[in-house]
Amino acid sequence: MDVGKLVAVIGDEDTVTGFLLAGVGHRTAEGSNFLIVKQDTQLTQVEESFQKLSQRNDIGIILINQHIANDIRHVLKDYNQTIPTVLEIPSKEHPYDPEQDYIMQRVNMFLGGGGI
């Protein structure tokens, strides 16, 4: 039987709560597929959470708020796997900027390098 993959979320409280209410949340004895990043969340905790989620075989997509992705950009630039795919998403407080999105930068490069 082919089992589907999970969506993981790293984001602010509103973003993660919204995805959990939509049914994305999954928690086991080993951990969960989400991280709520608050003002007092250590950067190392965000980095470690991303590393753990990106190494799990049951995760297909990692959604991360763009402003949080900017904080761990050094980690994301070294990430080169296709699955799980990392998608940067906006939050209520921080609008989406395609020029900061690494995936959009690569798509733009492959399509001819014009402005986004």
Results as ranks from 00 to 15, higher is better:
Arg73Val: 10
Gly23Glu: 06
Gly23Arg: 08
Asn70Pro: 00
Phe110Val: 13
Pro84Val: 09
Thr82Val: 10
Gly60Leu: 00
Gly113Glu: 07
Gly25Val: 01
Thr85Ser: 10
Asn80His: 10
Leu20His: 02
Ile59Arg: 09
Gly113His: 07
Gln51His: 05
Leu21Cys: 07
Ile116Ala: 04
Pro98Gly: 01
Val9Asn: 04
Ile36Gly: 08
Arg56Leu: 15
Asn108Glu: 06
Asp97Gln: 09
Gly4Leu: 10
Thr15Trp: 02
Val9Ile: 15
Leu87His: 09
Lys52Leu: 12
His26Gly: 04
Gly60Asp: 01
Phe50Met: 06
Pro90Arg: 14
Val9Gly: 05
Pro98Val: 00
Phe34Lys: 09
Gln100Pro: 01
Val46Pro: 02
Glu99Met: 03
Arg56Asn: 12
Thr85Trp: 08
Gly18Ala: 05
Lys38Cys: 08
Glu13Met: 05
Leu87Tyr: 09
Ile103Trp: 12
Asp78His: 02
Leu76Glu: 00
Arg73Gly: 01
Pro90Ser: 15
Leu35Phe: 11
Gln42Pro: 07
Tyr102Ala: 14
Met109Leu: 11
Val9Leu: 09
Glu88Asp: 14
Glu47Met: 00
Val86Leu: 07
Ser54Gly: 10
Asn80Ala: 07
Gly113Met: 08
Glu13Phe: 04
Leu53Cys: 05
Gly60His: 02
Lys5Trp: 05
Leu43Ala: 08
Ser49Thr: 13
Glu93Val: 11
Ile61Leu: 06
Leu6Val: 05
His67Lys: 06
Thr41Lys: 11
Leu87Lys: 10
Asp14Ala: 10
Asp40Pro: 03
Asp97Gly: 01
Asp101Arg: 06
Met109Ile: 07
Leu21Gly: 02
Ser91His: 14
Thr82Ser: 05
Asp12Ile: 03
Lys38Met: 12
Gln39Asp: 15
Ala22Arg: 07
Asp97Cys: 05
His74Tyr: 12
Ile89Met: 14
Gly11His: 02
Asp97Lys: 10
Ile64Tyr: 02
Thr44Ile: 11
Asn57Tyr: 10
Asn70His: 08
Thr15Gly: 04
Ile64Gln: 05
Arg27Val: 14
